[in-house]
């Protein structure tokens, strides 16, 4: 067992699961989407991105690209959330919630691609 692979797989998967956890639920209902989960998703995504640094293979490059996409989307969601609650005054409106959650939905898609790549990598490795 390769510890590096375990850590890598763990973070890639955790990024996707946290993202999914935040995304699931009625898109316009702020009560169903926890800011803590979004925070955790951003942090874990950042760690996953850094773990993908410096891999020169083609699949490594695509891995990094998906993570960067997920980061951009999640950070955008976090910024909008922060802006809406701190500047827009108190609670999140249904429209704002929808924007934040749909952004995280986009990030989820990138994370799913990342997981698919991970699976492909694993499968092709075993075949060799």
């Amino acid at each position: 067992m390769n510890l590096e692979k375990v850590v890598f797989g763990f973070f890639v998967l955790l990024a996707a699961t946290l993202n999914f956890g935040f995304f699931i639920g009625d898109i316009a209902d702020p009560a169903l989407h926890s800011p803590w989960e979004l925070f955790a998703a951003v942090v874990v995504n950042l760690v996953a991105t850094v773990l993908k640094f410096g891999d020169r293979t083609q699949i490594g490059a695509v891995h990094l690209a998906t993570s960067l996409v997920a980061n951009v989307q999640l950070i955008a969601a976090a910024v909008i959330w922060t802006y809406a609650t701190n500047v827009g005054g108190g609670a999140l409106s249904a429209e704002e919630t929808a924007v934040v959650v749909s952004l995280s939905g986009g990030a989820l898609f990138a994370n799913v691609v990342s997981v698919v790549l991970l699976v492909i990598e694993t499968v092709s490795f075993q075949r060799r």
Binding site: V43, L46, V47, V50, L51, F53, G54, R56
Partner: peptide, 17 residues
């Protein structure tokens, strides 16, 4: 760049955590 990124993996993760 790849060398920099590879060597900076651990410090960056420590920083993020």
């Amino acid at each position: 760049l790849t060398t920099v990124l590879r060597r900076m993996r651990v410090p960056l993760i420590v920083l993020i955590v």
